[in-house]
């Protein structure tokens, strides 16, 4: 177990460094553009030079990278070009909102996907299985934004039961004080990730059901529901834990869309606005935060897997 953890952590560190290099390289691909974005396309070369010097953009790229890493490690990501606030403050303000939105949707998606997938596996090739398969595929195949707007059209515009705008409160507590506004964004994100999860649970449960120990459990005289609860569920959910880590990027993509659709003031919206206005400090920092969060997420998933699977937990060295 120790060796397993060390190896995975080592890999995660390498990937975080890779993410830093990648994002930095991408954003500094076109040196003059930050100045143009901030000062306008008609800015003179002189003004651009002044801007670049002020922001340290005229130094060699490796030197800029070193500075960036040093400052990033101290939590200093510079100042937003467009919002004129420290980037770290912006992110600190928005991250908890994303934790709320994404956490709720993932929990909800799992709460539906696990029973659904196991049910489909048990009733494999039945009419219900086919119907749920089609539902899952349809959900999966809908563009996130279209799905969100359809919900708005139905519940806000037609039925007037839910607001189309997400709550704009600054704190998580404030958002929770008005949970109705949270419903549509959460439902959108849930349904989008539901499909992937349920398909995975289904195929995992199908392979578990074919294992010898399931037959052994039946031979002991266990009822089918007991067999499922005691022997199938845990074994088929083990691989799903690692999938959780791997789906993080897809969920972030969904968050960018959902936040723009519902005007939810989270990282996704921040990022989208930064991308369109070429606000490089914000772009760089938020990409980095999302990347690191993804790496840490999948690392945690693997650790959880190691704890849940006794074959790894009790592995000597």
């Amino acid at each position: 177990m120790t060796a397993y953890l060390l190896r995975r952590t080592g890999q995660a560190v390498v990937v975080v460094i890779g993410v830093m290099v990648l994002t930095f390289a991408l954003i500094h691909f076109e040196p003059g553009s930050a100045a143009r974005a901030t000062l306008g396309t008609r800015a003179t070369a002189e003004r651009i030079a002044v801007f670049n010097a002020a922001n340290g953009l005229n130094r060699p790229l490796p030197a800029q990278f070193v500075t960036f890493v040093k400052q990033a490690l101290q939590g200093d990501f510079g100042t937003s070009y467009s919002l004129h606030q420290p980037v770290s403050a912006l992110i600190a303000q928005r991250l908890p909102r994303d934790a709320l939105l994404l956490g709720l949707s993932i929990l909800l998606a799992l709460a539906v996907a696990v029973p659904m997938g196991v049910y489909q596996a048990v009733r494999r090739d039945s009419a219900a299985d086919h119907v749920l398969t089609v539902v899952a595929f349809t959900l999966y195949s809908m563009p996130d934004f279209f799905f969100g707007l359809l919900l708005v059209a139905l519940f806000s515009v037609q039925l007037h039961i839910l607001p189309s705008q997400a709550p704009q409160a600054v704190s998580v507590g404030g958002i929770l004080a008005d949970p109705r506004g949270l419903v549509l964004p959460v439902v959108t994100l849930t349904l989008v990730s539901l499909a992937g999860f349920s398909r995975y649970v289904r195929s995992s449960a199908i392979s578990t059901l074919a294992q010898d120990y399931v037959l052994v459990a039946r031979a002991k005289g266990l009822a089918e529901s007991q067999v499922l609860r005691r022997h199938v569920l845990r074994n088929s959910l083990l691989p799903v834990v690692t999938i959780l880590g791997l789906t993080a990027p897809a969920i972030v993509t969904g968050a960018v869309i959902a936040e723009s659709v519902f005007n939810y003031p989270g990282m996704g919206l921040l990022f989208y606005q930064a991308a369109t206005s070429k606000d490089y400090p914000v772009l760089l920092a938020s990409t980095l935060v999302v990347g690191v969060a993804t790496v840490v997420g999948s690392l945690l998933a693997d650790v959880a897997y190691g704890i849940l699977d006794p074959r790894i937990r009790y592995d000597r060295d």
Binding site: V15, G18, I27, L246, L283, V295
Partner: peptide, 17 residues
């Protein structure tokens, strides 16, 4: 690790940039 790095940054984020 190169693959992991690209996977860690969500595709849409890279695309947007």
């Amino acid at each position: 690790r190169v693959v992991d790095t690209f996977l860690a940054v969500p595709g849409l984020v890279l695309l947007l940039i």
